[in-house]
Design a protein around this nucleic acid. Structure first.
Lengths: 338, 338
DNA sequence: TCGATTCACTGATACGTTTCAGTGAAACGC
DNA sequence: GCGTTTCACTGAAACGTATCAGTGAATCGA
């Protein structure tokens, strides 16, 4: 069935013809450069009449700028990261950019492949929440493309800006809270990660645990609620389980809630749970999930501001540190003075 | 700071030069058309050596195809729709397409503007979960661009395919269940909608309520958890409140849970709640949310298959009907025979 | 009054591919 | 052995814009 032909769009040449100007003049006029007010108005008029709209593809080819910003998420299985991606998409749209949102799914190899594809796709900038901030390709990528990192700073890469979480402080907040509630042996559930031994956040956990003389036991949890639940089930089924679980994202904590429900364990009586992120759903659970809150709105605004500035050639190259806040709800039992 | 120059990419001309062929031959060879196996191999080799990668912008300008599919969501405040968007993004990536995900935020005017922008952006196809399926511009848009609708069919538009929810059945499932549990007066919470009086799903609610002799009371809930909670608070604060609330999405039901918690009401003793969608979190609440489940994986697969086929010129123009399933959990009280 | 500057605009080229209309040679049918 | 196909490839023309290097006229300063 021959689709009724795509209805030829008007080109800049037709507008030029209609106004008696050269295509170059029209191009300038529509962008408000180098032409008289009167001409601008005349061109606008003609463009509107012809229904002319500059072709973004041709514009991109000629100018080298696509108006698209790549957003490479660590793992979109994670609900908090979903919120972040949605927020970034909206904020970028408000700045007349399109967000190309991709999901590394926690896999460093995939992250690398997608980042390079995004560059080949000619995005004007890249916002990334790195799975593997130590990967060497970041340096090469960031030199030639404005890259803004969220979460962890990119090691050795000259980024266009960074919105870094003070994970040291976040971890301290969480672990001190647990210790003050009398928890001495703690299970730490962290998302599956590349085997970079020095991943910043993980380092802080070990360091803080040592400082606070806590006995921690790190378990790696695959992505997705089902997988997380399975990992948590294994942990909780053990009668000699720790008294508390510190989950490195609220989504992981949800898996613990699910596993606890399955096993007939109650929170916080049988197991205390602490999250990290503060997703809107965390307040709705019973009991509410005590967690470490990051200001998602502030993160979005900062990242977008940085990447847009860099894409426009106004480079600021700033590092913005995000400070966490403890959200106390009811998922951690008070064991009395430990 | 002059960013080290963007490191000129190799062009097709350089590959042509290296192989002693014409650019045209290289173009054909890289797409495996009209050239000998031997030449293809030779070109591949040279391209790899030069690190050549076809420029998507130039390709799009010449061929008229961008490889991008627009995804226009009704409201990304809704968690289920977030899952849907994430799923669509992943499935499209698996088919070597980029998803341009946009959020109409429940606003028909915004929906219209974004849909047109997506067309101007030259996407190869559009997947839309329409806010206003009756809007007249769909017809004009769908004629010239493959459009696949999810949820409600686009009225009067020649779409490239449709994945339609059997809302009639879904509503029947929910309302019959409530009636069988003895609920006669029911609050219906539906997302803010354009004032199309004949929105399909809403029509079914009225019709089914009539058939089942239920007394319903429709409230419109703005988007977002906070707004939904506020709307629910108002509803629940009334001592003469209905015995059950039927929410037209799980996200709205979450607002009812939040409001109930605030007011010290317990579910389902003080108020029964029924959802619609089945988001993963619904099973984690206390009590679990009884809801109507739609197979999100099937929806994603169907929509992507349809839009990709249409974008490739293989038009099937199919309408796929999704059937719902009741997920009984604990949020509806059994009032005994009504 | 004259050279310099600014202003408003033009012509041509570049961007990097795809694709159409060939083209010469080889293969084929009879 | 001759006309016809097929094959593998070429040359050139799009695709629709941005931008560089002018150009003639008007304005300016002294």
């Amino acid at each position: 069935m021959p689709r009724s032909q795509p209805r030829k769009r008007a080109t800049i040449r037709e507008v030029a013809q209609a106004t008696g100007l050269s295509p170059a003049a029209v191009s300038y006029a529509l962008r408000g450069m180098q032409v008289s007010e009167e001409t601008i108005e005349r061109v606008r008029q003609a463009a509107a009449e012809l229904g002319y709209e500059a072709d973004p593809i041709a514009r991109a080819l000629a100018s080298g700028r696509t108006g698209m910003i790549g957003v490479l998420c660590g793992s979109l299985e994670d609900l908090w990261q979903q919120s972040l991606a949605v927020g970034l998409g909206r904020a970028l749209r408000d700045k007349d950019r399109y967000a190309l949102i991709l999901d590394a799914a926690g896999d460093p190899a995939r992250e690398r492949a997608l980042a390079l594809q995004l560059r080949d796709q000619r995005v004007d900038g890249l916002i990334v929440q790195p799975v593997d901030p130590a990967a060497p390709f970041w340096a090469q990528l960031a030199d030639g493309l404005p890259v803004v990192a969220i979460g962890d700073a990119l090691l050795d890469a000259r980024t266009a800006g960074e919105v870094v979480f003070d994970n040291r402080n976040g971890v301290t907040l969480a672990l001190e809270y647990l210790r003050n509630k009398g928890h001495g042996r703690i299970a730490v559930l962290t998302p599956t990660r590349p085997s970079t031994p020095d991943r910043p956040a993980d380092v802080h956990v070990t360091a803080e645990a040592e400082r606070l003389k806590l006995d921690i036991e790190v378990t790696t949890a695959p992505h997705g609620l089902a997988a997380t639940t399975a990992a948590a089930r294994e942990l909780l089924a053990d009668d000699a389980r720790p008294s508390a679980a510190f989950c490195f994202s609220d989504s992981i904590a949800y898996g613990v809630y699910a596993a606890a429900a399955e096993l007939g364990l109650s929170i916080p009586e049988d197991i205390s749970v602490m999250g990290y992120d503060d997703h809107p759903m965390s307040g709705l659970l019973t009991p509410g999930l005590t967690t470490v809150n990051w200001d998602i709105g502030g993160i979005v605004r900062a990242a977008v501001r940085l990447v847009v500035a860099a894409a426009d050639g106004r480079n600021r190259r700033r590092r913005i540190i995000q400070e966490p806040e403890l959200r106390e709800r009811g998922s951690v039992a008070d064991l009395g003075l430990g």
